Every structure is written in C-alpha cells, then in structure tokens.
Amino acid sequence: MSPGTAPPVVPRGGGREAITRAARESFAERGYHGTSIRDIARGAGLSLSALYHWHAGKQDLLAAVIEESTAEYFGRCDEALREAGDDPAARLGALVRATVEYRVSRQVESTIAASEWRNLEPAHRERLAEMRSAASRLWADLVDDGVARGVFRCEHPDDARRAVIASCNAIAQWFEPDGGLGVPELVERYTAIARRIVDCR
C-alpha cells in the first residue's frame, strides 16, 4: 500500500459470509468459468479491494465454498452416527437421513461441489480430497461392520456402498421443494432402498 493510501473498507461482521454467499450464488447461476471476481464483489456489495482482504481470488473462493459444504456434510453425518448407537441397521438409517436432509437443504452447495470439482487447482483438490475421503470412510466402515456382524449380507460391500451414496447424492439434482414429496417420506424411501442394497436382514 502506498503512503497516504487508505486501507480497503471492510464491513464489520458478515464480510466473509457475504462474499461466500455471493460466490455460491454466482457459481450456481453462471458456473465457475462464467463467473468473474467482479461479479462476486458486486453480489456481496463490496469493492474489489475489500473482497481481496478476505480471499486471494476466484479459485480460493471456489475452494472455500466446497470446503464449507464438505465440512458441514461431514459434521452432520458424524453427529447422526453418534446418536444412532452401535446397531449397523440404525447407523445406516442415520447416515442415509443425514445425507438426504443435507442434499435437500443444501442443493446449491451440493451441485457446486459435484459440478465444479474439476475446476479446482491441484493443491486445493488434493487438500479437499482428504475431506471427501473421510466422509466416504464413514460409509465404508459402516457397511464393513454390518457385513462382519452378519447384519448386511451384500456380496460386494464396496459396490453396495457406492450405490447407496450415489443414489442419495443424486437427490440434489432432481428434488423439487414443491414437488409433493416431503423430506421425511424421502428419508423413509431412501432408507428402505439402502437396506435392500446392502441386504439388511
């Protein structure tokens, strides 16, 4: 900053949140490549200098949006499993419920994480892949435990796990809040589907 130049005006509180919200909305509407850093600053009601106070650029913002989404999903799953106890069938239902509820309540974030992942630079992708792997391990450990204890009888646990995750994740792509299907019913349906896939008896 040159002598006599005033520092960027950064709003008290909400600055980072406003920027992240604007980035999320712009990525969802225009895609990563269709979004400019000026679009995000304008959407947040900030100057470019104020935006750069929080983030180095558009790539960092994409990583931040995906990181926040992944962390929230992982947190919900972790909490659901803690509350479910030790029974594999109950834990499967809890994990399905957490995933379905997240995909419904965070459709925009889920879509961005899925569609814009390829646009992350290697350093961001490598770091965030570790978070994704941790969430996947929750499912893998659950299915493996159910098989080991004879509660799940699927012959191919890895394929079963992938099928359950894919079906739940896809909800973000098609769910319509006004489509006549409520979240509790959706959870019930997908829990039944998951139980059939893992052959829960």
Rank of each mutant, 00 (worst) to 15 (best):
R132P: 03
T191D: 11
S115G: 06
V9C: 10
Y73I: 06
Y32F: 11
V164E: 05
M131P: 12
H55E: 10
G182V: 05
R76Y: 03
F152T: 04
G85A: 01
L46A: 08
E185F: 05
P88C: 05
S133C: 06
E126F: 15
E121Q: 10
G14S: 01
V65R: 03
P11E: 00
G179M: 02
A89T: 15
F152E: 01
A56Q: 10
A166L: 11
W139C: 03
P177S: 06
E72M: 14
R137F: 10
D86L: 05
R161I: 03
C154H: 07
S136G: 06
S36W: 00
A123R: 13
D159W: 13
E72N: 15
A80D: 03
A123T: 12
V164Y: 09
P184A: 09
P88E: 06
G31L: 02
A134M: 15
F74I: 14
W174R: 13
L51M: 08
A28V: 01
A113L: 14
A84P: 04
A28G: 10
L95W: 12
P8R: 09
I112C: 15
S47L: 09
H156T: 01
I19R: 01
S69C: 07
A41H: 02
L142M: 15
A160V: 01
D158C: 00
D87M: 03
L48D: 11
A113T: 12
N169E: 11
R16Y: 11
S47D: 02
E68L: 11
A56N: 09
D199W: 01
A172C: 14
W139Q: 13
H53A: 05
E101N: 14
